[in-house]
Design a protein around this nucleic acid. Sequence first.
DNA 1: GCTCCAAGTAACTTGATGGTTACTTAACCG
DNA 2: CGGTTAAGTAACCATCAAGTTACTTGGAGC
Lengths: 215, 215
Amino acid sequence: MTAPAKTDSSATRNPERTRERILTAALKEFAAHGFAGARVDAIARRAAINKRMLYHYFGDKEGLFKAVLRRKISQRQAWADNLSGDPAESLQFWFEAACKDVDWVRMLEWEALQGDAQKPIDEKERRAATARGMNRIRQRQARGQISAGFDPRHVMLAMRSLTMFPVAFPQLTRLITGRSVFDPKFQRERMAFLKKFAAVFRPAQGQQVKINFMK
Amino acid sequence: MTAPAKTDSSATRNPERTRERILTAALKEFAAHGFAGARVDAIARRAAINKRMLYHYFGDKEGLFKAVLRRKISQRQAWADNLSGDPAESLQFWFEAACKDVDWVRMLEWEALQGDAQKPIDEKERRAATARGMNRIRQRQARGQISAGFDPRHVMLAMRSLTMFPVAFPQLTRLITGRSVFDPKFQRERMAFLKKFAAVFRPAQGQQVKINFMK
DNA sequence: GCTCCAAGTAACTTGATGGTTACTTAACCG
DNA sequence: CGGTTAAGTAACCATCAAGTTACTTGGAGC
């Protein structure tokens, strides 16, 4: 066999590993400092590769940024497509996910701040993933788990808001609750709140349903 | 009278006006590009002042950034302390405010991404303002406008989330709803949604419906 | 073994950018 | 009125950072 083991972690030459290292290092750097603040040299240092390789594989800084974002996006999507159940669980699930993957939230934030809102990266795939999520919401509405009176698009937006916000704005979280987002105590409180709060999404007893219907 | 009219807009020398111009220009620039991305020369050009003056008044780029943030914060606080009524109105009010003052939302976002979460700028005053807001929520809970079952801190966090999020993440808003945050149609939809959605905050069951009807 | 190409390295270039120096000019005050 | 100080200007500098040039090396296929 001439081919070296793919999992070899210390082979003299290994394009895949190099690419991977660059992407991992770049994610850290970009998540921490954003596009403008990230230093290409820092990425190279962190990845323990020569800066030239970075240009070799990704063209330029922007190409690397896009590659990082794209990779994160597809990771998340593959991973996100399996969840079901009622809104309470979803809210908790997504809040936990945001806490566990701060880099993701931050990347979205950087994208929001510096990206062109008109043509987001990987728009097509993201739209598809969003559509899948939307269908799940519609199903739940049909099943009566979520009130049919709400526009599913706004339900989705509301859920994202409620789960991502504390991670996206840690300083406000601290200002308001007095605790760090990463404080386990805060997280427990938040989970409890979300569980209770999820009631909004469910069709209410009695009258309210009628009101919703009449609308 | 030796003193020139304070409102004179073209006096040969006018420190106040210069300071003001710098701050205004800097807000725009920082909101658009963040701290790292902002260009001091661009600020100077935009403000139509000599770059040196900027260092004269604010020391360095960071000093300027802090000054901008501080100014915006105090502006908002003065302005935010008058609102009352029920959660539906508050939600709508704050959503509108976010839409109207995107720069503010973006500054908070930049702060979140690059600021030290441990020691936010102007912490003391912000805490005080937050506390005032919290008291309003508690009052409403006492009056039965908001369910007493919720932790007021989390209610506040939830309200902020719901109102700021679409502006903070315009690309997600577009991806999810298909519309720009600034599309009047979106804004109308969102207002309607928030109004309905605010029901969650109100004490549940029987009462709720009545309140809805009475409104 | 030899050749060729991708992987990899080190040192360099070039332009942008935050900050400074050295100077001029207006205004306030005793 | 004169002189001290703050407002204002223009040209400059040092540094930093993205991107390149020019080179070396490993290995797959013949």
